[in-house]
Each structure stands twice: as C-alpha cells, then as structure tokens.
Amino acid sequence: MVDVMPTTTDTTQRSATISVLVDNEAGILARVVGLFSGRGYNIDSLTVAPVDAGGLYSRMNIVTSGTSMVIEQIKAQIDRLVPVHRVADLTMDGPHVARELALVKVIGTGEQRVEAMRIADTFRARVVDTTLGSFVFELTGNTDKIDAFIELMRDLGLAEVSRSGIAALARGTRVI
C-alpha cells in the first residue's frame, strides 16, 4: 500500500474509470451514489453486479471526470466507506479494457432499413429482435464505438436506446 500521490493544482479535466469491489449488501449503491451527489462529483456511467460465486462481493465500475485532485479525492472518499474492499483508477493504473452493451431500436422501411442493416454489419451488431418495420440491434464495444453507431442510426430511424454503462478490467495479469 502506498501513500497518496502528491497532486498538482492542475485544472485540466480528465475522465476516469474507477472500479470498486464492495460487500454485496443492501444500501451500498446508495452509499456510493450519495457520496457522488453529496460532494458534487459527476457520474458519467455506473454499473454494478455481484461478481463472485457466493454473491458476497459486487463490483462497481464508475466513469467520472474531474481534475486529477478531484479524482484522487473521489478514490479516497470511496475507499473510506466501510463496506469497500478495494478501489482502483483503471485509467491511471495502466492499460485496461472497457466495454459496454447497447440495445438500439431503429424503425424504418425500404432503403433506410437496408442501410441500417448494412451499417450494423460493419459494426458487428447483432439483430436481437425484428419486425417488418423495425430492428433491435445489440452492440458491444467501447463507448466511442457505441456513440458512433448511434450517431449513424440517427438518420436511419433511430427510435430508442438502452445502454448498460461500462464494465472494465485491467489488461494483463493485474487484478484490483
């Protein structure tokens, strides 16, 4: 365990993907979310689910942004919550993979419908539901890829989007 890194008064904002291993207990999500709202931090996305066979631990992946001093502060604030086992800033700790899943409903017919299908192929999106006038695409990838796909669908009858928020892990042998 190392002491916190000396921080500068740098005012540039950066995005951070923070992973937190917590006891899987009632109220823990409210505790973490309340900490963000109470202290005025941003949450760009948040995912949480049990991650071990016994259902004892949950992992939260939080995408947030702020100056490096604020992000250090967020980590420290989360770390001192009693049911928190570990906190890691995946963005700073080295390379990591981050993926999210999106379901995208596109309504249209004729040429638009064909074009939507063609683009979906390019993005390796799967069709998980279809009618004569609609598709629901399932797409996995990093946030930029999903943003790009949704942007392209906008002119092709985009009707509704549901996104999971990101799940993330460090690359290589490192674990949090």
Binding site: D3, V4, P6, T7, T8, Q73, A76, Q77, D79, R80
Partner: peptide, 17 residues
Amino acid sequence: IDGSSINKNVPVEVPII
C-alpha cells in the same frame, strides 16, 4: 489517518497516512 483529508483542499509534498 484519513487519506481523503490529504490533498483535499491544499496539495502537499509529503503525505503520511
């Protein structure tokens, strides 16, 4: 003793938790 008190308002050169 509280890591979140360090570098919260004032950046410091030598933090000791």
